[in-house]
Design a protein around this nucleic acid. Structure first.
Lengths: 231, 231
DNA sequence: TTGAATAATGAACAGTGTTCAGTTATCTTT
DNA sequence: AAAGATAACTGAACACTGTTCATTATTCAA
């Protein structure tokens, strides 16, 4: 045995100990993946980053189960051993996008000392992210579940984490506002930033270029904050 | 001949004079629509309202060319004589949704005397519309064109018309702000309202019920307006 | 009545998500 | 080492999707 790896599947499947062999070079008649080349979690990881790449390059529409499968050297059937369905796969990709977004906002605001400036920077980070990864970012909102299927808890947590970041930035400026009001203000403000972003991306704002969007965001936040702090 | 109708197709096709016969009761072997039962524009209209109904009831996903076709008693092929493709059809439906939305906002703000109250009412009209026709409203933003295809001018006009309504509501409160600033404020404010709306619909705001969304919208507009007018 | 024109069809094509019987390859036990 | 059990993986099948276009059916003009 070359190496042993403990694979812990996340989908209520049984845990299983699997042996993973080094690639031998032999690739079969059609270079198809051989049994136990990869653990379930490895396949999961490969599929997710392959899907991510496809979405990044060709958007939500240019994305399909067969494309993801062939990109990682497996067939469709295997995908369905690792994911419940395509909605599940997409939700995972969206989760990772939220992770990247959150990490970026966290990183870029850290350098900022002033509370107000820090909050504005959060907005700008968001816009820049949406501009650099429009397809991945957009899929979070384009994708809709089959008829009123509730969003899973773990995903809701990732969203809440973003609002928490805004709340934290808002708190120093809040004066004597109650925590509840701060929470509401964070939601309102951030929805506003998001609204600008999505209308700009879907070509409904009649603005051109990233800078105009940044200006608009700045304008919204600036006025809101004056209203919020000035009374 | 029973009646003659001038049919003016809108898609750079030739204009054609067509005769339309009253329904005879004979429906063929499979009750399929007979030649010249309807003019091109009538088919267009039938298809649009059938599509609208499907979207309203089953959402963007439960919508297909064949379903629309069979709902109006024709086959797929006929749809492609009247529309360029499905994207075209969807865009037309979206245009009509924007028309209804605009009409409603125009109607409901008229009753309001106070400028500030009128503006708030605009926001509430928007939220209520999105809540009553979530699928139709959502499709305006869910739908994305094939790879960077520009939004047609006539559609942009319908969007601009909505922003103009906000601008008009904002103008009496603008003090010595320039028209350019008013335009920017209208975009910022309205994007904000829209952002709240879309995050609420896609279940990412952790708020429940229409009232909470209304409150949040009110909160955003209120603070923004205080910031906008107070300096 | 014949011929041209056009309205409408429906089969065909290449793609989609999803399932699952069947075929391996690997592990365990004898 | 051979056989049996187990799990990995395939790939064909199903019912869909958007789109095209040769055929057919109907109507109008000559």
């Amino acid at each position: 045995m070359n190496s042993v790896q403990l694979s812990l599947s996340q989908n209520n499947k049984h845990c299983s100990i699997k042996t993973r062999y080094a690639v031998t070079g032999w690739q079969g008649e059609h270079s198809m993946a051989r049994r136990s080349d990869h653990s379930r979690d490895e396949i999961r990881e490969m599929a997710l980053s392959a899907a991510e790449k496809i979405v990044r390059e060709h958007g939500y529409k240019g994305f399909s189960a067969r494309k993801v499968a062939s990109a990682i050297g497996y067939t469709v059937g295997t995908l369905y051993l690792v994911f419940d369905n395509l909605d599940d796969l997409i939700l995972q990709v969206n989760g990772r996008t939220l992770d990247r977004l959150h990490a970026r906002m966290l990183r870029e605001q850290a350098a900022c000392g002033q509370a107000a400036a820090r909050l504005l920077r959060l907005g700008h980070s968001y816009i820049r992210f949406a501009n650099e990864e429009p397809h991945c970012w957009g899929m979070i909102f384009e994708h809709r579940f089959a008829q009123n299927q509730a969003t899973p808890e773990w995903f809701q947590v990732k969203v809440a984490r973003m609002f928490a970041l805004v709340e934290a930035g808002l708190a120093p400026l809040a004066g004597n506002h109650s925590p509840q009001e701060i929470a509401q203000a964070a939601r309102a403000l951030w929805s506003g930033v998001h609204g600008i972003c999505i209308l700009a991306v879907t070509d409904k704002l009649d603005v051109v270029g990233v800078d105009s969007v940044q200006d608009l965001t700045h304008y919204l936040m600036d006025n809101f904050l004056r209203g919020f702090t000035g009374s």
